[in-house]
Each structure stands twice: as structure tokens, then as C-alpha cells.
């Protein structure tokens, strides 16, 4: 049996590195290693215009508004186009918070200033007066694995989805995309966007495996994933969901 492998591309690790999102890379790496699947992680930083077509999985994390402006000019230099074609090609993307917003058309601040983003998927984000902060909990649509995800959101942008894209899931507790329509995140082809820090993957192993499955299936046709002992992960996952359902979780 030949060894399977996944090549992960971590985009802008030096800039979009807040809120522990690098834990997602660590999580993917370990879950692949534990199953004997090779995993290679490369970092693509600002100014690096290397070929993105060789990668199977892309991760973009969250960052500060200030640093996102630095990224805009880099995206325009060609990287944006490469990202777009990788998404159209069905590659898996996990994009969190700022990285998620960046995949949409634009971010409009309270004062009406508009920052043009990539427009990879049909959605946009509008700045608001208050931050949406706290532990939250949503259920993925059946098309995105159907699992329950618990995480921590911290954003002031409100994201509204347009035609042709689906939400990643529906809220059970928290604000999600915008605090109005009970949606959370986005799913477009194999692009998964979410506001969930925490980081999202270690505590939601079912979702982590769904992403891994999606990536392997695209690359190799159907692949059977060996089960792992997730008792430590699920204990934390279930405990937090119980706290939220009891109304004992943190919310600002």
C-alpha cells in the first residue's frame, strides 16, 4: 500500500496568527500522522508568490484589522488569483475570522470605507458598533458533515451571505455570521469559512476529520479513515456544549 499524503499550505502565518489558530495546523498534522498519512506543512508569507497548485489543503487564520491592510496589497500582486483558482479547483480551504472575511467581496467599515477583498465566494462583511464575543455553538449543515461545533467568536464584522453559497451551519447559541439570521460561516465548493476560534479543530475532531476526508477523497477517490480515540477531545467538546445549554457559558 502506497503511503498517502496531504500537503498543507498555511497562508500568511506571520500576519494572521492571533487567537491560537495555529492549533488547527497542529491538529491536522497529528490526526494525519496518527493514521500513518504523511503531512507536509509549508508557509506562504507576504511577498512569497510561489505556486499554490501543488497543495491539497489551505489554512488562513484571523488577525488584527491593522495587519489585514498590509495583506491587501500582497493579495493584489497575484496571490489572490492563485487562491481563487485553487478554490475553484475544489481544494480544501479552512478560513477563520479575518481569513474568512477576506474570501468575500469586501469589508465595509462603519464610516462607509470599503476594503475590497478577494471575492472568491459570494458574501460580504460590514463593520458594526459592537463586538460579538463569547463561547458559541452551531450545527453544520448535512452537506458539511452535520457535526456540532463549539468555539469562541470575537468579531465586530457582520457577514451576510449572497446567492450561490451556503452557510457552514446554523446557530444554536451565539451570534455567528451577523447576529441576525442564525447562520454561521460559509461553504462554497470545498471552502469552509467560520468565525470560530478556540481553535476550531482540536475540540471538534469530527469536523477536523470531515475536512481531512474531503481532502483525501478529492485527491485519491474514496478513502476510509481509521477511527481515532477522541475521548479527550470529546470530553471537552461535550462539557462546553452542556455548559452552554445550561446557560452557564460566558457571553459578553
Amino acid at each position: 500500500m502506497s503511503t498517502k499524503s496531504i500537503k498543507i499550505c498555511h497562508i500568511y502565518p506571520e500576519a494572521l496568527n492571533l487567537y491560537g489558530d495555529r492549533g488547527n495546523i497542529l491538529c491536522l498534522k497529528k490526526r494525519l500522522e496518527w493514521r500513518g498519512i504523511d503531512c507536509y506543512v509549508s508557509e506562504v508569507k507576504i511577498g512569497d508568490n510561489s505556486d499554490l497548485s501543488e497543495y491539497d489543503f489551505f489554512f488562513i487564520g484571523g488577525g488584527q484589522d491593522f495587519e489585514q491592510e498590509v495583506l491587501l496589497s500582497d493579495l493584489k500582486s497575484g496571490k489572490g488569483r492563485s487562491i481563487k483558482s485553487a478554490v475553484e479547483d475544489g481544494k480544501t480551504f479552512l478560513c477563520i475570522c479575518g481569513g474568512y472575511q477576506m474570501m468575500g467581496h469586501y469589508y465595509e467599515t462603519k464610516d462607509g470605507n470599503r476594503m475590497e477583498f478577494l471575492g472568491v465566494a459570494n458574501f460580504a462583511t460590514i463593520g458594526s458598533e459592537y463586538r460579538m464575543i463569547g463561547d458559541y455553538f452551531f450545527k453544520c449543515t448535512p452537506e458539511s458533515g452535520g457535526c456540532e461545533i463549539v468555539g469562541f467568536e470575537n468579531h465586530s464584522g457582520r457577514t451576510y451571505l449572497g446567492e450561490g453559497v451556503a452557510p457552514l451551519g446554523h446557530l444554536i447559541y451565539g451570534y455567528g455570521n451577523n447576529g441576525d439570521d442564525d447562520t454561521e460561516g460559509v461553504r462554497y465548493k470545498n471552502l469552509f469559512g467560520s468565525y470560530s476560534h478556540g481553535p476550531i479543530l482540536p475540540k471538534n475532531p469530527e469536523f477536523a476529520d470531515y475536512l481531512i476526508q474531503t481532502t483525501l477523497d478529492r485527491k485519491y477517490g474514496h478513502v476510509d479513515l481509521a477511527p481515532l480515540d477522541d475521548s479527550v477531545e470529546n470530553d471537552a467538546h461535550d462539557h462546553m456544549i452542556n455548559l452552554i445549554l445550561k446557560g452557564a457559558a460566558n457571553k459578553n
Binding site: 491560537g20 489558530d21 497542529l26 464575543i133 469562541f152 481553535p199 482540536p202
Partner: peptide
């Protein structure tokens, strides 16, 4: 701070 994700950093 309610957000403990910093432990991953």
C-alpha cells in the same frame, strides 16, 4: 479573559 485559545500559541 473568556477566550482561552491563546494556550495554542
Amino acid at each position: 479573559g473568556h477566550d482561552i485559545s491563546w494556550i495554542w500559541d
